[in-house]
Design a protein around this nucleic acid. Sequence first.
DNA 1: CTGTTAGCGCATTCAG
DNA 2: CTGAATGCGCTAACAG
Lengths: 339, 339
Amino acid sequence: MSANKAGRKASMGDVAAAAGVSKTTISRYLHGEFGYMSEQTKAKIEGVIKELGYRPNKMAQSLKATVSHMVGVSIADMGNPFSSLLIKGIQEECRARDVQLLVSDSNNQPTLERANIESLLDAQVDGLIVNTVGNNDDWLVRFHDRANRKPVVMLDRIVLPLIYDSVTNNNDAAVREMLEYLKGQGFAYVVFVMRPGEGISTRTARRQAVERYCDDLGLGGEVLVYDDGIDGLRSRIANLLELCGNRKTCLFANNDESMRDILEATSAGLRRHVGVCSFADEHWAKYSGPGITCLDQEPMLMGRRAAQKLFARIYDGSEEPCSLDEVPARLCIFASTEI
Amino acid sequence: MSANKAGRKASMGDVAAAAGVSKTTISRYLHGEFGYMSEQTKAKIEGVIKELGYRPNKMAQSLKATVSHMVGVSIADMGNPFSSLLIKGIQEECRARDVQLLVSDSNNQPTLERANIESLLDAQVDGLIVNTVGNNDDWLVRFHDRANRKPVVMLDRIVLPLIYDSVTNNNDAAVREMLEYLKGQGFAYVVFVMRPGEGISTRTARRQAVERYCDDLGLGGEVLVYDDGIDGLRSRIANLLELCGNRKTCLFANNDESMRDILEATSAGLRRHVGVCSFADEHWAKYSGPGITCLDQEPMLMGRRAAQKLFARIYDGSEEPCSLDEVPARLCIFASTEI
DNA sequence: CTGTTAGCGCATTCAG
DNA sequence: CTGAATGCGCTAACAG
């Protein structure tokens, strides 16, 4: 079992030659068109294929066809459990459709994101799922107008107005649910803690929701944006809690990362009437510190939804206008807010 | 800017026609062979390419060439922060070499792993990085003997004897380091806690190391294999600690997953003379429960090493005999063992 | 300085 | 029931 020419793998031509038939016949065999094929040649071909360990070359198939059965995903930051779950979800759908997944990490840099998308297209993917790093909307909007553009689905972070199919959390409603729960727990003041998030849709959405619903619910609230490391955060939090006096206050982290930063910044242990909650993965939040009440975003489900939307357009010929799917976040209650 | 035939993207032929030259000239232009090219046609081509938004089709290039500039990675379980960091590391090297990365998740099933590897090969990847699910060694060994086999690097989990290039942790030495540290802390008994791990190289390596070095160091020790959920684990641990009496005992988890299971199983809070440590990511261990002392495996570094080894073989023509790179795990000390 | 030709591995008419 | 011929987009001799 092997190849003949220059150490290459056996090709259809090799099989044809070995079986003493034409390439056409092999092709027909592979596509199950036995209708008018003699049992003899069929058996012969089967034998030769096994003998040579022949497998059709998908690249060559794609070159002729209009589809490659490959899709690309550009991920903002792969080193993030959230991202890996998005990809796991996407991957599940890919497996179901026998599609290959090309993954690129943008490392939070818009420049890389653009380069990655171009590279994926050069590799002839049939479509793209983009978890944008943010601050790349202008380019993404221009990209939308390109001729012969491949289908794109935005994942978790979106571009407005809605020019692409998108999947995200119900950020607004989730924030409201959390604030209502906190109010029920007797909290009087909420501090939303986040890294700078201009240009990242989820952050602004959540920030605005916090501001709005704190008002609606009669909660005191503010947004704390930090960009100066753990020590900076520590002193800001300390100041802030000072001002709060003995109002029951909750720190609400924008994501896992900020949640960990809060835990580190407050490790001296200034809890008393101070709660903590976060957008975060339930499995990790549950065992972080005392157990952190969280909004789990169900990233795997989000990934699957995004892939489904993409495949519908690519392979099922869907022509629907683009739409936004909101995956509801799950409120998971642990000890950090039961004070 | 657009295509002409059937909505396809502009091809080299289209560019050639529009520029009034032959495809060869375009090809030369693209490869920077301006040596004998008139400034005129050069300028003309440049204009047309921009006009048409032409980009060369990598698939077509690969069809002729002997390399595709794509590599595949088969990952045991994508839904695992460890895995995502492995991939992030691999991805970094891919970017540096302008290689596309195809990712497949085996969801811990050997059957899927085999199918994924075959699919990746069908897509014409130049090589593979395999983070095996375990219990697939027979197949992997047979695979090794295939004609025209593509280069393979095993990542984190290895196959013995060493027939593939491999990257793993220094499991044996790391376990020893941890046990020595525990002894220094006054622990007298160590329980290595793991899910069943027959057929997974890292688990057996660690398990054996624990058994050996406990003896060497004069520590009491045993291995606790659990497969019956949190409640099962809880009662096993309780029994076990009962037997230990008041010897200072440490639970040593095989990975993040078992670490979380231990935290859940002991959430009732039976710590006193009981410590906890684990193979785990520093960032997560630090904020888990009281802060869990851990061996951080540096998965990103592992991923990079694996990719480097693979690329050396594929693109630099390395012919070295296959070898094992051991990435040292870092001991990170937190509160859980400072008792 | 540029074009012609052939072929990578496969699918697809069309003609037996 | 089967095969020859053509072309997908690109590269690489080989001729001019």
